[in-house]
Each structure stands twice: as C-alpha cells, then as structure tokens.
Design a protein around this nucleic acid. Structure first.
Lengths: 346, 346
DNA sequence: AAACGGAAGGAAAACGATTGCCTAGACGCT
DNA sequence: AGCGTCTAGGCAATCGTTTTCCTTCCGTTT
C-alpha cells in the first residue's frame, strides 16, 4: 500500500496522521478526532481509524501537538549539585508523580556551576517546558534560579530565598527531635551529638533542634556538640574525643549515617557495647550504611522520594493555575534498628 | 510597547520571533536569518534584531523548530532497572557528551517492568527523540527493546542479545585480570576469589577471568570460588569460611567493594593483618566503600562515566548516519590503595 | 412536500520557526 | 542613459496536529 511500512528492517520514518487518515479513507481532521475521542463520528469510522493507526504504528508527533496546544507536557529538572545520593530519590519521586500524568522529564545536571545552570535554564525555556523543578544536594536556601520566569518553578530539597517561591524541604528539626525523643524513650539521658561542618545548614539546624529537645526534657548535651565533617573517619575520631571526656555517654545522635558508622566501629574497638553501653542513631537512613553497620543502625529517614513526589504534584498544580507558595517542610520518620534496641531484647 | 513585557511579575508568555521582528522592524523570516547567521543581511540589521531578541528575552520555540527541521535534538534514556548507583555515572557521562552537543535528555525509569518500558518507548518515539540510550543495573545481555525502531538505539552497561545492536559495556574480564595481575605483582600466590551470586552474569565472568589469569601464571585458586551475594554480610561470612580452610590465604580478590569491606572487617577481627597477612582487592571503586574500609581498599574502576559518554557519542554518530554495531567493551582501571600496599611501605 | 434539525465528516486556519525563491533597489559598466 | 548584476530583505510554503467552522446528507415533522 504505502511505501514499505511492512519492511522488516528499520522503520525509516514515523507515520503521520495524514497517512493514517488516507489508509482509513477519511480526512486528517477526522482521524485526529477519532484518535482523541472528540467530534461526532460513527463508531465504525472511529474504529477504522484506530485500526489504521495501529497498523502503521502511528504515534502523534509531540512537537506538532505542543506547537498547537501551547503546552508540551514536559518539565525540566535541574540539579544544581551533581546528581548524587540525595538527588536520585528526589528524581525517582518526581518522575513517579509526573510519569503518571503523562509528563516527561528533562534532566539537567548543572554541577554547581551558575553558568551551566543559566544555560540549562534557557534551554529548558526554549523547549517550552511547562514547569521546572530545581534540586540540590544541600538543604540550604539558595537564590531563585531566575527573576521572573514564564513557567512555574518548584524547589525540592533545597529552598529558595524568595518566600514567594514554592519549596519542598525535609523538616530536619523534626527529624532531630524524633531522634532525641527516641533516645529519651529508651531511657538514655547522657546524650551527645556528633555532626557535620558548622557552616553546613543541615548541621546547624539539626544541632539546634537537638539542643532544644534536650532542653525541654530538662537536659543538656553531655558534651559540647562536635562539628566535623560528613565522614566515617570523623565518626571514628569523634569516638575518641567522647571516650576521653570525663562524663560517661550513654547515647550519641549522629548527623549522618556515615558518622554513626565510624563511631560504632571505634566505640566497639574501644570495648564499649552498642547499644548496651552506648546507643546510636544516624541520619539519612542510607541503606548501605545502616545495613553495613554493626549493629544495624537506627536512623532518620527524610523521605526524599516523598519530597520529590510532593514537589512534582505542586508543580503540576501550579501548571494548572493553582500555584503554591512558601516553604513546605515534610516530616521525617524514625527507623528503629538494633543500635537503639532496648537491651534485653536479644 | 507590546503588552507588558516590562512587568516585573511573572512573564506570562514567551516572545515569538514575529514580535522580535516587529520590534526590529523586519519580517519574521529576516529575523530568523539574523539570529541564525544565515542569509545576506546588513550587519546593522543583524544587530538590531539581536538586540530586539535580547530585549524581549526571546528563545526560539523548540517545538516549532523541530517540527520543521524533522529533528528534535533530544534523546531518551531508559534505565531498565531503577535509577541507581550504576545508572547515575552512566547518566552523567551521557549527559556530558550530549549536553555539549546541545542535546537534551529525557530520563525514563522503567523499574524493570516491561510494561513501563514499552510505555516509555512509545512516549519517546512520540516525542520524536533522535535516539535512545538503554541502561540497566546488570551487565547481562537483554532482549532488544524493540524490533525495528525509527531511531538508533545504543545500549550502555547492559548489552543487547542482538549482535547487530550497538552496546557499550565494561570489560569485566579485563578488570578481573588486572586485579589478579596486581596481586601477583605484589608477590601473592595463595589467592582466593569471593563474589556474588552464581547466576549473576558479572560474577561468572569475573570468576572465570580470575581462573584463567591464575592458570596462565601456573596457579589455581587457593580455595574454590565462593559465590554468595553482593553484601558486606556475605563478605564477613566468607572470611570465616576462608579462615577455616586448611590452606593459608595471602590475598583475596572480591567481586565487589561491599564484599571486600565485610571481609576486611572480619579478617581483622580474627587477628589477620590487611594487607600484611592478606591483601584485598574490591570491584567497582565505590567511593564510600573504598574510603570507609580500613585499610582503604584497592579496587577496579569500570569507568562508568566513560561508558555513558562513549554510548552517547556512538548514538550521536548513529544519528548522523554512521551507526556502529556490536559490543564495545571498555577497559577498566586498577586504583591501588592501602589494602594491597607492599608491606614495608608504611 | 417543504422545512427543519441533527449527525458525520471535510476544509482550512491556526501554532512558530525556517528556508527557498523572488523582488526591489542600488550600483557599475558600456 | 540603459542594461546587467549584486545585495538586502520580504513572501509564502512547509512541518504535523488540532480545532473551528462549514457542508452535506438523511430522517422527521407538520
């Protein structure tokens, strides 16, 4: 019939709706109506068109469609920091919420470079994305990505310094609170906090929530808060510092799972039992760390997928004319494991 | 002038080339030529148009452009397994090679579900992507994603069972060879191999390359190859097995960094020194594992970013009419660290 | 029997950018 | 002065789909 659509080799060219229409013996306009369930058509005509479309493997050209619809059913996702451990769950969550809505995602990795970021922003706008999600590795607020954009923007994990922008972030203070509450609930009172660098937003937020929660229980940390870096090595080092303190420690809340794991190793090498002598809580609930640690590590899960999903949902709402504003903080979740088990459980 | 493009609030609508042309006092066609450096135009006209475009923040509508060009400067990336530790470097590498060529990437996470995969495939074809990269978590060959597609496809990390397809994969046998050669070079002869599940393609490939390399040195493994799973727990367990063997072991090549790390811990708890008594090599060169391990872990790096980049380059070549075929295996790289240091180095 | 109404489908104009072709000047040459 | 040539830029078609009118035809009603 046509010009070789039955070839077994590579299909050279996608079929157009005009070809479908010709095969079904109708006009292109009618074919469009048939395939999209619009207009007034006889059921048999509709079916004839559908069969023709199937036979030719017709898929509507999205460029033509968006040209006339003024919408692309496409969003951009810019990760300001390189795609990493935090970006991925966010990405999965967002992709989840958008994929269900037939929206495709352009992924852009700006690598923490403002030039690349602006370049990608222009590219995305040129591609007429319906909206943009901005993501990063740190929760710290950042400058808005552009002054006044023709499409809605939602910040995920990071937040924008402009309160009118929409941001979805983890409630890190809430996470710290849950951690301390848990340690109090299992009867620990001599609690220390070891965390990342003092200039890091997450570290300070979690540290001050830790202080506050202890204070409202009438306690204070058994040692000054230990700021260091987000690594196992620092966890090991911190263990040494804590053990040389005069005051005995019976629990440590760590700012990350890596720190906690380093601490666990070093404490046990020094003869302390976990959790019998010292209970341990991490932060992030990073599978390889919490499972690799011995004993398995209790941790705070920030529900990154949920953040990605929520951001995508808010973006879709904004695209549909119902923009949200401000900072939406999502609560975390404590995942109890052996490192805080009440002892005679075993 | 226009209808409020100077508003400080949100820009409602992107400017079109006709508006730019009107502002510059030329026709749309001329404006197009001015902005794309075509046609015969007076320099001053060209500049006038460029200034108008700048003033209106003009970015060409990609849908319109691709509609007429028949190309979208867009590729799809389907990860058959969920986006994970292996997919990301691939993604970064690909994004790197494509971004430089002004090509945007649609990311699709098929989650190992054939239905989702086909759905995404149709979506991508509808969006008229110029090409598709298929990625996964395992290196095992898989069925081609579709029988005869209108666009080129390149498989990255995984490979296609159809030899006519183009695949870019790590040379895992080469990696294993390098590991064993390294152990031999530092004088070890009593070498064991602990790896993942026997039904896992990577495990068997690496294991048989290990055997072969040992054989060509006139050796054989000091213990039967230990197949298990890709976890630290299995590494610890395997340590027990190896230590209960009569024959003393002086080096272990592990199928993953996680196994190696578990092994390292357990060996040292049992009083063996690493690397003095037993040298250790992992596989993957996964930063958190090799750095977290004590001593730091020598490992094989499969250069995933390079694979992603190469796949993207081959895809671009195919799009430009120079398709490549077959399986392209990229060599790995040994990254030496303390776990195989020749002892009196310290 | 004439008029009306509804159903089914066609024709054509969008959407925005690109590009080949054409025209209107301007300049130079004879 | 008249013709040819070159240059700058306008015109209109094109890409594939959707959608808004229309038109046509058939059946029904008075």
């Amino acid at each position: 019939m046509g010009n070789g659509e039955e070839t077994l080799g590579t299909i050279d060219r996608a079929a157009t709706i005009s070809e479908v229409a010709a095969l079904a013996g109708v006009s292109p306009g009618t074919a469009s109506k048939a395939l999209n369930g619009r207009g007034a058509l006889r059921p048999e005509t509709r079916q004839r068109v559908q069969e023709a479309a199937e036979q030719l493997g017709f898929v509507a050209n999205a460029a033509a469609r968006s040209l006339q619809a003024g919408r692309t059913y496409t969003v951009g996702m810019i990760t300001t920091d390189s795609i990493g451990r935090f970006s991925i769950p966010l990405l999965i969550g967002a992709e989840d919420a958008l994929g269900a809505g037939q929206v495709s995602v352009f992924l852009c990795d700006a690598r923490d470079d403002p030039i690349r970021e602006q370049y990608y922003l222009r590219t995305l706008l040129g591609r007429q994305v319906d909206g943009i999600i901005v993501t990063g590795r740190r929760t710290q607020a950042r400058h808005p990505i552009g002054p006044s954009l023709p499409v809605p923007v939602v910040y995920a994990f990071i937040s924008s310094t402009d309160p009118a922008d929409c941001s979805v972030v983890p409630d890190e203070a809430d996470g710290a609170r849950r951690a301390i509450d848990h340690l109090l609930a299992i009867g620990r009172r001599r609690i220390a906090h070891v965390t990342g660098p003092e200039h890091h937003h997450s570290a300070t937020v979690r540290a001050s929530a830790t202080m506050q929660t202890l204070a409202s229980a009438g306690l204070e940390p058994v040692a000054p808060i230990l700021f260091g870096e987000w690594s196992e090595a620092w966890g090991r080092q911190a263990a040494g510092i804590l053990l040389s303190t005069e005051a005995p420690v019976d629990a440590v809340f760590c700012g990350s799972d890596q720190i906690a794991r380093g601490l666990a190793e070093a404490l046990q090498e020094a003869g302390r039992r976990v959790p019998a002598d010292i209970a341990l809580i991490g932060f992030d609930n990073w599978d390889v760390m919490v499972d690799g640690c011995r004993p398995a590590l209790t941790s705070i899960d920030m529900d990154l997928e949920g953040i990605g999903r929520t951001a995508a949902e808010l973006l879709l709402a904004a695209i549909n004319g119902e923009p949200a504003h401000g900072r939406h903080a999502l609560p975390g979740r404590l995942v109890p494991r052996a490192s805080t088990a009440v002892y005679p459980v075993l």
